Amino acid sequence: TTFVALYDYESRTETDLSFKKGERLQIVNNTEGDWWLAHSLSTGQTGYIPSNYVAPS
């Protein structure tokens, strides 16, 4: 499932994924509650993102 970032997010830990508003993200795993494992289609990096910062594209 592809989502789009609603806001900028700066990672707080090394497992988080930083992203910019408008960036497209492929969700890898969304069974972890409020933090989803995502892959950035812009940077190619993978990490955890706050689910309330993204919406379906």
Rank of each mutant, 00 (worst) to 15 (best):
T1R: 09
T1M: 14
T1F: 15
T1D: 08
T2Q: 06
T2P: 02
T2R: 03
F3V: 09
F3I: 01
F3M: 14
F3E: 09
V4A: 07
V4T: 11
A5R: 00
A5C: 10
A5D: 00
A5H: 00
L6E: 08
L6G: 01
L6R: 07
Y7F: 11
Y7E: 08
Y7H: 06
D8R: 02
D8C: 02
D8F: 01
D8L: 00
D8M: 01
Y9V: 03
Y9A: 02
Y9L: 02
E10V: 08
S11P: 10
S11C: 07
S11F: 01
S11R: 13
R12N: 02
R12V: 12
R12W: 06
T13N: 13
E14N: 15
E14H: 11
E14A: 10
E14M: 05
E14S: 13
T15A: 08
T15R: 09
D16Y: 03
D16R: 09
L17G: 03
L17M: 03
L17R: 01
L17V: 07
L17F: 15
S18F: 02
S18W: 02
F19S: 02
F19V: 03
K20N: 02
K20Q: 15
K20C: 08
K21P: 01
K21R: 12
K21L: 04
K21M: 08
K21G: 04
K21W: 00
K21H: 07
G22P: 00
G22A: 02
G22C: 01
G22L: 02
G22D: 09
E23D: 15
E23M: 05
E23K: 01
E23S: 03
E23A: 02
R24K: 13
R24F: 10
R24E: 15
R24I: 12
R24W: 07
L25S: 01
L25M: 15
L25I: 09
Q26V: 07
Q26W: 08
I27S: 08
I27Q: 06
I27A: 10
I27V: 13
V28S: 05
V28D: 03
V28C: 02
V28R: 12
V28I: 13
N29I: 05
N29C: 14
N29P: 12
N29H: 09
N30Q: 03
N30I: 06
N30P: 15
N30T: 15
T31V: 15
T31K: 05
E32V: 11
E32F: 05
E32A: 10
G33D: 11
G33T: 09
G33I: 04
D34L: 09
D34N: 09
D34H: 03
D34M: 12
D34P: 12
W35Y: 14
W35E: 06
W35H: 15
W35Q: 13
W35C: 12
W35M: 07
W36E: 01
W36P: 04
W36A: 09
L37P: 02
L37T: 05
L37S: 04
L37R: 07
A38L: 00
A38M: 04
A38I: 02
A38T: 02
H39Q: 10
H39E: 11
H39R: 12
H39W: 10
H39A: 14
H39T: 08
H39I: 03
S40W: 00
S40L: 12
S40G: 02
S40Q: 15
L41E: 12
S42I: 13
S42D: 08
S42W: 07
T43M: 03
T43V: 00
G44L: 10
G44K: 14
G44M: 14
Q45M: 10
Q45P: 01
Q45G: 12
Q45C: 10
Q45N: 07
T46H: 04
T46R: 14
T46Y: 15
T46G: 05
G47V: 00
G47D: 00
G47A: 02
G47E: 01
Y48L: 13
Y48K: 08
Y48M: 14
I49S: 00
I49F: 02
I49G: 00
I49T: 02
S51P: 11
S51L: 03
S51Y: 06
S51Q: 08
S51I: 04
S51E: 15
N52D: 05
N52T: 13
N52I: 06
N52E: 12
Y53W: 07
Y53F: 07
Y53R: 10
V54S: 02
V54K: 01
V54Y: 03
S57R: 12
